[in-house]
Amino acid sequence: MNTTFNPQRTGMVAAACTVVALAVGYAFPQWQFLLAVALSKGLVALGLVLLLRSGLASFGQGLYYCAGAYSVGMAMTYLEWNNLVVLLVGATLLAAVLGGILGFLLARYRDIFFAMLTLALSMILYGLLIRNPVLGGSDGFNVYAPVIFGEKLSRPALFAVTVILTGVTVWAIQRYLQSRAGRLGPAIKDNEVRVEYLGASARRNIHLNYILAAGLAGFGGGLSSFSIGHIDPDMAFWTTSGEFVFIAILGGTRNAYAPLLGAIVLELIRSLAYQYAPNTWQVVMGASMLALIVFLPGGLISLTQRALEKRRARQHAQEAGL
């Protein structure tokens, strides 16, 4: 994989993907909700990619996804805030600060210990939410359309905002992955001791990635709450966190665009399976996911790598023929 840092190309790819998503959404309005939810979940999986590149799997990103969503719901319910920017910034900062605090503990652990600790922390939040009526109990909160520039956002406008914000975020994370700090992740996964010998702090880099992953999850939770219109404790349940891990693996970890692709494909398969096989949709979905994992172990994004390799092979063959 070519890791040469090219900000212009990164921006062009992000802009092209954003335009395509907007075009598809407005050409097929019935898919706007699915795309908006998929992109929101893709942002959470994007944070997981940062950790997976360092060899760590978090089964507790539902903690920050739920924290971001609940910050939006509670701010609307108790503080009567409705400004989109304020709500999303608050959701992101709350999740990032929480991730920063817990990261001091989690950055010390690796492998199964890291995964189980993240899962345990997420389930603690789930238990607190489901038994606390002040926090909505098992019913949660309703979330209403936010306001920007004094105007309440309609569904199509909210979809456009979600796509644009996602595009900007993916562009920023892709640039991070191509920076020195971003490239340390695979090096830590390969040999953490060697990274330490070279003068870089593996623990500090993992802590930074964990904070970024938490912030992305909170941001995705805030966006998701607007699209769905309701939040509940299940957002912190272990199955939700497991879905984010699956999305990250399904898309791949080669770049920042992969988890968004994985999230869209997963939501599309789920929607079609539920529509055409309502009684056996879980079986259809499971079989589809199993086939994708078996035949594309590198994730969906590996298809682009295969296409590039075939293109280079043809070019070399043509040059050799000349």
Rank of each mutant, 00 (worst) to 15 (best):
M74T: 00
I293A: 15
T118D: 03
L184S: 09
M74S: 03
V283L: 14
R155W: 09
Q305K: 03
W171K: 00
Q8V: 04
Y70S: 06
R312F: 14
F28M: 02
F226A: 03
M74L: 07
N82C: 02
N191T: 04
R175Y: 10
A236W: 01
L272K: 08
L52K: 09
L105V: 13
L303Y: 03
E267T: 00
G127A: 14
G42F: 06
F28H: 07
A67C: 06
A23M: 13
Q61E: 12
G100S: 06
T304S: 10
A307S: 09
G62Q: 01
L223W: 07
I112R: 03
L35M: 15
L261Q: 01
T162M: 13
L35E: 00
Q275N: 15
T240C: 07
N2S: 14
E192I: 05
W31F: 12
K189F: 01
Y65Q: 10
V19I: 15
Y26Q: 04
A27V: 08
V13A: 14
Y176L: 08
M123H: 13
F244P: 00
L272P: 13
G103E: 09
L322S: 04
K152C: 05
V193A: 08
L50V: 03
N132H: 09
N279M: 06
L51I: 07
A313G: 02
P29W: 05
M123W: 10
G42S: 08
N142Y: 13
M123Q: 15
G251M: 00
L290D: 15
G73P: 02
S227K: 05
L303K: 05
L216R: 05
Q61Y: 08
G62M: 06
A75H: 00
F114C: 07
F141E: 01
A181V: 02
L268K: 07
A27L: 12
A16R: 09
T77H: 15
L292W: 06
W31L: 15
L39K: 07
A187E: 13
Q282A: 08
Q282H: 10
L87D: 03
A145S: 10
L46G: 08
A15P: 00
V143G: 00
A23L: 15
C66R: 03
L43I: 10
T77L: 07
L268I: 11
K41G: 11
G136T: 04
V89S: 15
H316N: 14
G251P: 03
G229M: 11
A14W: 07
W31Y: 14
P186T: 00
Y176R: 03
